[in-house]
Design a binder for these strands. Structure first.
Lengths: 218, 218
DNA sequence: ACTCCTTCTTACTCCGGAGTAAGTTTACTT
DNA sequence: AAGTAAACTTACTCCGGAGTAAGAAGGAGT
């Protein structure tokens, strides 16, 4: 009757990945607290004690999800931004394209990282904050290069201000990318590369000119 | 010993506001699920059944918080953006300043709206989505005016594309503002007006030129 | 074909916290 | 000062779901 493949036994590493896959899906759909370990176990085709044996507590399970997904995302962006191109603008464009591509291809992962993990507190929050900071740092560096910060006088009072400005811009840029990623998911046919270009179009000119002190109302 | 003011009885409307104040604080600090009704009751100096009598269930309490805080925020931004100035740029600047000012003056409210409510699902999520959409719509209108969309041919294939571009920019702008608000909270001495100007400096030139089709790599 | 380790399950315990039944006290009104 | 409606409390019930004790069954090596 049932062609049930008679649950095969699998090595621990493989099962763990299956569990994490299931956990990401459920956490993504329900959120941390509304998720029950029973549901994760069910979706992973495994009993609850095995889940606890391999992944520890519920919080540790969530933490493991965040760690794995954040690594994937950071790697994806980082390696794109370290691409052959010289100009910071081109590297920024590559990083953004990689980011929007990742989100489009891994919705669940994105939702868990962006919507669920942010509201968490404790160790998980710090974990995510660190991943985000890594991305922001990468962007900050590109922003500083674009702003031609090297032209700024060293040690001058304007130097610290420009450093702060670069940090602010990087945060704004990452936030804009987050929001655009959500937006792109609601627009059928929107390509990652196109989304990245929209953002570049919006900020690129302003970015180059900021290094020279030009801007709104000047 | 204790100059305990001997718990005065208060009219319902007043108590309700006290309860909502307490609820916002606790939800902000702990998040929805980690918050217990007992703790809200304690902080509001009230017994739990009274809390249930006035505000209904836990979910309804949270919903009431979101409704009140979202209204305040949307009003604050909306009335600033409807300021006397004619130019869309100036109105955008006013709206942003009001927004950063609100966040600086109402951290708890902001945290509840931005970090806690987003991860929620169901009625609350829709509520928040509606408030956010209202802000995005306001911004979209300003963006379209800045882009000199009126110069676009009506009905042309480029028209729909420009509308979409305006929506994308508005989403990016709101997301950037969100992230900058968080950033500003971590930087001592950062003034709302200064934060608003940073963002305007970054996007204003690009915004004006987008209407003419100029941008990154062109 | 017997060990022995790893994989895996059934069947529980236990508690935090949502929600409530029933009653008590204060302050207006006539 | 008596009546009454609103404000308010003590002291519970009850359940979902986190976490676990105890053991079963498959497979690799000898």
């Amino acid at each position: 009757m049932h062609p049930e493949p008679s649950r095969k036994r699998l090595p621990r590493k493989v099962r763990e990945q299956q569990m994490l896959d299931a956990a990401v899906q459920v956490f993504s759909a329900r959120g941390f607290h509304a998720t029950s370990m029973d549901e994760i176990a069910e979706r992973a085709q495994v009993s609850k004690p095995l889940l606890y044996l391999y992944l520890g507590s519920k919080e540790e399970t969530f933490s493991a999800c965040i760690a794995r997904e954040a690594d994937r995302l950071v790697d994806s962006i980082g390696s794109a931004a370290r691409s052959p191109a010289d100009e910071p603008g081109e590297r920024l464009m590559q990083g953004l394209t990689a980011f929007f591509g990742y989100v489009a291809a891994n919705r669940d992962s994105w939702v868990v990282l962006y919507q669920q993990a942010r509201s968490q507190s404790g160790a998980v929050a710090e974990q995510l904050a660190r991943a985000r900071a890594e991305i922001v740092d990468t962007v900050t560096e590109l922003v500083r290069q674009s702003m031609e910060l090297d032209q700024a006088r060293e040690g001058g009072s304007g130097y610290a201000a420009l450093r702060r400005e670069a940090a602010a811009i990087a945060h704004a840029l990452v936030g804009a990318a987050d929001a655009l990623a959500d937006w792109a998911l609601t627009v059928p046919g929107e390509q990652p590369e196109a989304t990245a270009r929209r953002l570049m179009n919006l900020i690129w000119i302003g970015l180059e000119r900021r290094g020279k002190g030009e801007g709104y109302g000047s």
